Simulated assay, not measured.
Amino acid sequence: MTYCVGMMLDQGIAFMSDTRTNAGLDNISTFTKMTTWEMPGDRVLTVMTAGNLATTQSVISLLDERTKAPDERAPTLLEVPSMFQAARLVAETLREVIARQGDEGQRADSAFNATIILGGQIAGGPPRLFLIYPEGNFIEAGQDTAFFQIGEMKYGRPILVRAYDRQMKFDEAMKLLLVSFDSTLKANLTVGAPFDFHLYETDSLRKGREGRIEEDDPFFLKIRHGWSAALKTALDNLDDFEL
């Protein structure tokens, strides 16, 4: 399984993804689920994927290969004029891969499905964030829904819903994301560290701070233990139920 979050902020966009894939408890591997394309001064686009690994890798490979060997009839991610057109391109590529694998491979409902988060900025437009479905349609983050999750989202969602604030800075967003990921990791063995992150700053038009956080990272351990202790303290301070 997977857990990825893309979060719109006034400062920019925060991305985080886990790296665990599994085909059963005895077949667990680590694969990156985050890819970023950059043309400094013109555009930065980050994609995170969840779903069938063969499908998601094929989509990323196709998108990347087409940027290196452009077709005059169809613009690539490095050529489309807007983030909306980038979302359309990613959606069409995802639908293309799923259709091909469904025709050529094993027949099973949803066997080749995948879901994608796309975010970034192209010169001349604002930062934008999209959630792309396997059917090839997509929605965009806005004021009411300013973050997207894909994969195993239910365990990490409550803290995001309660604590998210669009005005928070990247350091605060990282703290919130790590609490969300820790909650998911504790509840579901199919999600695991290390966690990849990318912090894109509005109007920079270049990659922001990016890196990987291991499960034994000192800051992550501090967040994990601090959050657990804070939850217990908060529960203890609530009034007892009267029987």
Results as ranks from 00 to 15, higher is better:
residue 83 M to A: 03
residue 31 F to T: 01
residue 33 K to Q: 00
residue 98 I to E: 10
residue 141 A to I: 07
residue 129 L to I: 06
residue 138 F to M: 05
residue 66 R to M: 07
residue 238 L to G: 06
residue 10 D to N: 09
residue 62 L to N: 13
residue 90 V to E: 05
residue 235 L to P: 02
residue 177 L to Q: 01
residue 150 I to S: 03
residue 236 D to L: 11
residue 114 A to G: 07
residue 36 T to Y: 11
residue 23 A to G: 09
residue 121 Q to Y: 14
residue 63 L to A: 02
residue 37 W to V: 03
residue 141 A to S: 10
residue 19 T to A: 01
residue 110 S to W: 06
residue 218 P to E: 12
residue 234 A to I: 04
residue 99 A to K: 10
residue 210 E to M: 11
residue 14 A to C: 07
residue 45 L to G: 02
residue 79 E to C: 03
residue 124 G to C: 09
residue 240 D to K: 12
residue 128 R to Y: 01
residue 162 R to W: 03
residue 104 E to T: 03
residue 174 M to E: 10
residue 52 N to A: 09
residue 193 A to G: 08
residue 29 S to T: 10
residue 177 L to W: 08
residue 27 N to I: 06
residue 96 E to F: 14
residue 81 P to R: 02
residue 104 E to R: 11
residue 195 F to I: 13
residue 159 I to K: 03
residue 220 F to S: 07
residue 116 I to G: 04
residue 155 Y to E: 09
residue 75 P to S: 09
residue 10 D to R: 11
residue 98 I to K: 08
residue 204 S to A: 13
residue 49 T to L: 02
residue 223 I to R: 11
residue 202 T to V: 12
residue 139 I to N: 01
residue 125 G to E: 15
residue 167 Q to W: 06
residue 229 A to S: 08
residue 16 M to N: 03
residue 196 D to P: 03
residue 76 T to H: 06
residue 1 M to N: 04
residue 95 R to G: 06
residue 106 Q to Y: 15
residue 9 L to V: 05
residue 229 A to W: 04
residue 216 D to H: 10
